[in-house]
Computed example of a mutant assay.
Amino acid sequence: MTKSPLNRPSWIALAAAGAALVTVTAALPAGAAQSPGGGSPTTAAATVRDRRTDPIDAAALQASLGTPADGLFAGAMARVGGREGRWTGTMGAVSADPDASFRVGSISKLFTSTVVLQLVAEGRLSLGTPVQRLLPGTVPAHWEPITVEQLLSHTSGLPRAACWDANAVYTPAELVRTVTECPQAGEPATGTDIPQVYNGVNYFLLGMAIEKVTGHSFADEVTRRITRPLGLRHTYVPAWGETGLRAPALAPHLPAADPWPWAEGGMVSNAPDLERFLTQLLRGRLLPPAQQKLLFELPRHAERGFTRGGVQYARLPDGTEVYGKSGSYGGYTNGVFATRDLRRSVVYSLVPLTTEQRRIEERYLGIAAAAF
């Protein structure tokens, strides 16, 4: 594999720690009001009002994006779809073209997990396959076996600390070694109930597994299995060294970002493509039933709210359950979520001007409340 041109250890630290998502998980609080003990999430019927015929509230949605005077976001875009119609709105610097491309960050993991589950369905992988057997030399052989399912659901217990060389460039395998061979990191958590700890290294390993099993690049497999069949013309995995966007971009004033996050968080897409991808994934077009059910099942010990299939699950304050993924990279903070019955979906991309997490969280939750 060609080495990445990355020469920025600050990103390596973030990737190894899984910060590409953790810093924005509050967009839809994955750990909130989960079903007791894991398993399949269940709706708390007593707290959920019937919203099956709720019309889209355009005024509330536009208000949820805020204004430039807020000083919170340079720009914001949201696209709402579902059975009750469609709405797209923008605010500030992204308003030129709401269908333009942006860096989706950790939403990339949904594409990675989908390819992995397809390979499981084909019998080329199993959920119980240890990564030590699948990718010899990447994870110490003396560690307790770490399975494909544990990587998907963030229950691998892999350490999140990393050791890196500020002057080095890293391939995915080398990036993994900055974690697994780092004395400060220690060994992974073990036991029958390993806590869910979001860790981007899990998805570097899954990307490597895809390439090992198929003999093709991660980008080729995403194209062949997902973007081409679904007609996602604006969704792709940037090549190593590709810092620009191939189509008009949201908030084009942002500096170019290195494409290093790869299978963990490096993809580019746009709102219509993300809406179509998540809709078709939840509808069952991309996976057979045995793997489809994993998208909605929580591990037994699931503090973070990621399902066995790697999907982010949240129950909103009014009881509405949603599935999807949030992500942040290259100046963009994004999310794509939908109800399981596809009554309503939302895609958003925001350009924060502040690091005040509480204020950002309030805006995320406001968008979610207006959308669903």
Score class of each variant (00 low, 15 high):
Pro29Val: 07
Leu65Glu: 02
Val94His: 03
Leu294Val: 05
Gly39Met: 10
Pro352Gly: 14
Val222Cys: 04
Val120Leu: 04
Leu286Asn: 12
Leu316Ile: 02
Phe277Glu: 00
Ser106Thr: 08
Val336Asn: 03
Tyr170Gly: 03
Pro252Asp: 10
Val336Thr: 13
Pro289Phe: 12
Leu110Phe: 05
Gly39Ser: 12
Ser108Asp: 08
Leu14Asn: 02
Ser153Gly: 05
Ala15Val: 08
Gly105Pro: 03
Asp220Leu: 08
Ile367Phe: 00
Arg340Asp: 08
Phe306Thr: 15
Ser64Trp: 06
Glu361His: 05
Leu250Lys: 06
Gly81Phe: 09
Leu350Arg: 02
Ser328Tyr: 06
Ser269Lys: 04
Asp220His: 15
Gln280Ile: 03
Asp165Trp: 01
Arg79Gly: 02
Ala17Gln: 09
Val322Cys: 06
Phe102Ala: 06
Gly82Cys: 04
Tyr332Lys: 07
His234Pro: 10
Ala247Pro: 03
Arg51Val: 12
Leu175Phe: 09
Thr243Ser: 09
Ala251Cys: 08
Gln196Lys: 06
Trp143Arg: 12
Thr190Lys: 12
Ala314Tyr: 01
Thr190Ala: 13
Gly330Phe: 05
Ala219Met: 14
Gln292Met: 09
Gly331Val: 04
Ala162Ser: 15
Leu254Val: 05
Asn167Glu: 15
Gly366Ala: 15
Val336Trp: 08
Asn202Trp: 01
Gly284Tyr: 12
Ser156Trp: 06
Leu127Ser: 07
Ser269Ala: 14
Phe277Gln: 01
Leu119Thr: 04
Ala33Pro: 13
Ala168Trp: 11
Ala63Glu: 13
Pro36Cys: 13
Pro145Met: 07
Gly186His: 09
Gly18Phe: 02
Ser4Asn: 09
Val115Ile: 06
Ala257Lys: 03
Glu187Asn: 09
Gln34His: 15
Trp11Pro: 04
Glu303Met: 11
Gly241Ser: 11
Ala314Thr: 07
Ile12Gln: 00
Ala30Val: 13
Phe204Lys: 02
Ala13Thr: 00
Glu181Trp: 08
Leu127Thr: 10
Ala30Asp: 12
Gly244Pro: 00
Met267Cys: 10
Thr90Asp: 04
His154Met: 15
Ala271Tyr: 01
Pro248Asn: 12
Glu242Ala: 09
Asn167Ile: 06
Phe296Gly: 07
Thr279Trp: 00
Val201Tyr: 03
